[in-house]
Every structure is written in C-alpha cells, then in structure tokens.
Amino acid sequence: MARMIFVNLPTRNLAAADAFYSAMGFEKNASFSNDDASSWMISPEIWVMSLSEAYFGGFLRGGDAPAFGEGGKQMLNALSCSSIGEVDELTRTAAAHGGAVYRDPKSDFPGMYGSAVTDPDGHVWELVWMEQPGDGTPTEESGE
C-alpha cells in the first residue's frame, strides 16, 4: 500500500469548508464524513479532513486549541498543479468560493510558478507548478 497523507484542518463552518473544497475539484468521501467532519480526496494518496472546531479539539492534548488563519502560520500546505493555467484557475476558484488569494500567482524561480490561497478558515494552500526535467514544457521566462 502506498503511503498516504491526511491533512486535518479545523473549521468554524463545515458547510462553507465543504463548498470551498468541492469547488476546488476535490472529491468528497461520504463514508468518512458526517456532521463533524468531511473527508476530501485530492488524489488517492492525499486527503483533507475538514473537522468541526469541537471535533478537531477532541484530538488535542495539553491545553492546545484549534488554530485558524489569524496571526502566525505554523504550516503552508503545498499542492502541485499540472500547469501554469491550473495554478491560475485554482487561484480564481478559491477566491470565488469562500477563500482568498494569500499570495498572487508569479514565477519565483525559472521553471516554477505558483500562488497561495486560503480556505474559508484561513488555512494556506500553496498552488505550485514545477517544470519537470526533460518535459519540454515552456516556461514564462523562456518566452515560449
């Protein structure tokens, strides 16, 4: 079995989180979803678990509390995209469906293009396209 990752995120509004992740094109798994949690498949190996604030808090210990997007950031979730166009499209989709643009799309390095968006609770998702060696995909820098 391939190793999998489950990104668990607290939400203050499960319906708003559901609308956001659905609009981003993720597939909801009803078998692992209920009134406290929604399970979203990004790929067979990558899942987002959107958990109500109280339910998420039940997994924490030592006085820890769920954290949202305000103030400091402990994590930036990065998601690969298949093209520059997909980065731009997902950035627009996030902003139109309860999220926000956290960092405008741009090319920081040759062969690399990305943006960052937040979900409705302020969790940051970086959207990144990277040219793979030998794939021949033109980059903005090459002018092709």
Rank of each mutant, 00 (worst) to 15 (best):
D64F: 05
L9P: 05
S80M: 12
E140Y: 08
T139Q: 12
S142R: 05
A19H: 14
S83Y: 04
E86L: 01
G25T: 11
S82Y: 09
G99H: 03
G136N: 08
M24G: 06
P44K: 03
P10M: 00
P138N: 11
E27A: 10
G63Q: 09
S52A: 07
F56T: 06
L79P: 07
D64Y: 04
L60P: 09
D135K: 15
S38D: 02
G114E: 03
Y21C: 02
I46D: 08
S50T: 12
Q132L: 06
L79Y: 06
Y113R: 09
G136Q: 08
R3I: 08
E144Q: 13
A100Y: 03
N13Y: 05
F32T: 09
G85S: 01
H97Q: 01
A95Y: 06
G57D: 06
S22T: 14
E141R: 14
N29F: 09
F56R: 09
V124C: 10
P10R: 00
K28H: 13
W40S: 05
G57A: 12
L51N: 12
S115Q: 07
G58S: 15
G71L: 00
D18E: 06
V128D: 14
N13C: 06
N34S: 14
S50H: 02
M41E: 11
I5S: 11
H123P: 13
G58Y: 06
Y102G: 10
L60Q: 04
Y102L: 09
A17I: 14
F32M: 13
M1H: 14
T93M: 00
G58A: 10
A94M: 07
D18V: 05
G98R: 01
S142H: 04
A78L: 02
D121A: 08
S107A: 08
G85E: 11
M112E: 15
K28V: 13
D108P: 14
A16G: 06
A67D: 00
F68S: 02
A95T: 08
A65C: 09
G58C: 05
G62M: 03
D108T: 08
A67S: 07
P105A: 01
K106Q: 15
H97I: 02
F6H: 00
A15C: 00
N29G: 05
S82D: 15
P10E: 01
A94C: 07
G134P: 05
V7L: 07
A95V: 12
G134N: 05
T139D: 04
R92L: 01
E144C: 03
F26Y: 02
A95Q: 14
I5C: 09
G98P: 07
L127H: 11
D119R: 01
G71P: 11
K28P: 10
W40G: 14
S39I: 12
G99P: 10
S31Q: 15
A2Y: 14
G136I: 09
A2G: 11
A67I: 06
S80K: 04
G85I: 03
E70G: 08
G69I: 05
V117E: 03
T139E: 11
Q74D: 11
G99F: 04
G98Q: 02
N8Q: 08
P133K: 10
F26K: 00
A78G: 07
R103I: 10
